[in-house]
């Protein structure tokens, strides 16, 4: 069984920076924040894995560690057998991160110009990036809006543009954080179908979400994260009681 992601004892502790006000009040030590506490994951490739947990459970931290954007305090990560700390560039070329932040695009550029730019950062030629960008914009249903500037896009269109960007370099692993947030019913369904089709192509998808219905619809495997620890994994239906506990503040 090929593992797309494997983490072992993954821990992340944030040390809040000292601000001027802290120094002025002679407070030179701030309480560290533990975002992840020995999190262990083994994600099979070619499946949609949902990561669910309440706010502050450590989902985004875990995703950013897998994508090589953060460094762990301790523990290990392997993405298709490669350690992002040892070879971050190799890992980044295999991972597509669907950042849903509206702010992550160049708003004065068109959709296709945004994708072309990021394609080149992923090592493609301008021509390859342009062709791939057109193909992806058609695929996510933005072909007719390709030349419109991104600030004129709706929230749903930006979400789909984000999916297209995460696919520009044809990655093996896709990571989406709250991909259905702010979408209407039709757009949400369309986005989830896009995600399903990615797994059918053999890609691995990690989806962090609060949206239970979305997870039930799309996920092959559900991982429950609470207070920085992975507290359960399995089929969504089996995880439901545990999830309810976590969201009520138990477990």
């Amino acid at each position: 069984m090929l593992l797309a992601v494997e983490t072992s004892g993954l821990t992340k502790i944030y040390q809040p920076p000292l601000r001027f006000e802290d120094i002025a009040r002679l407070r030179f030590h701030k309480q560290p924040v533990q975002a992840l506490d020995e999190a262990n994951l083994s994600l099979e490739s070619g499946k949609v894995h949902a990561l669910i947990g309440p706010n502050g459970a450590g989902k985004t931290t875990l995703l950013k560690l897998i994508a090589g954007l953060l460094m762990p305090t301790s523990g290990s990560i392997r993405v298709f057998g490669i350690d992002p700390l040892e070879d971050p560039l190799q890992v980044k070329s295999m991972v597509g991160f669907g950042l849903t932040e509206v702010r992550s695009f160049f708003l004065r550029l068109s959709g296709i110009e945004n994708l072309r730019f990021f394609g080149i950062l992923y090592g493609m030629t301008a021509r390859e990036a342009g062709e791939r960008a057109s193909e992806l914009l058609d695929w996510v249903g933005l072909g007719d809006k390709a030349d419109k500037v991104v600030w004129s896009y709706s929230a749903g269109m930006k979400q789909r543009l984000s999916i297209a960007r995460s696919l520009i370099h044809n990655p093996r692993l896709l990571i989406f954080d709250e991909v259905t947030r702010g979408l209407d019913v039709a757009m949400r369904r369309k986005t989830l179908d896009l995600i399903k089709s990615l797994a059918h192509e053999g890609r691995t998808v990690i989806l962090a979400s609060h949206d239970m219905d979305a997870v039930e619809y799309v996920a092959d495997m559900t991982w429950v994260i609470h207070r920085g620890r992975i507290v359960g994994n399995g089929d969504f239906k089996d995880m439901k009681p545990l999830l309810e506990d976590c969201f009520k503040g138990g477990k």
């Binding site: 560039l89 190799q90 991972v95 992550s104 160049f106 950062l121």
Partner: peptide, 14 residues
């Protein structure tokens, strides 16, 4: 401020 730094840092560009 625009939020594009994090998006660029996710690519293999150093």
């Amino acid at each position: 401020v625009l939020g594009t730094l994090e998006a660029m840092l996710m690519t293999p560009a150093s």
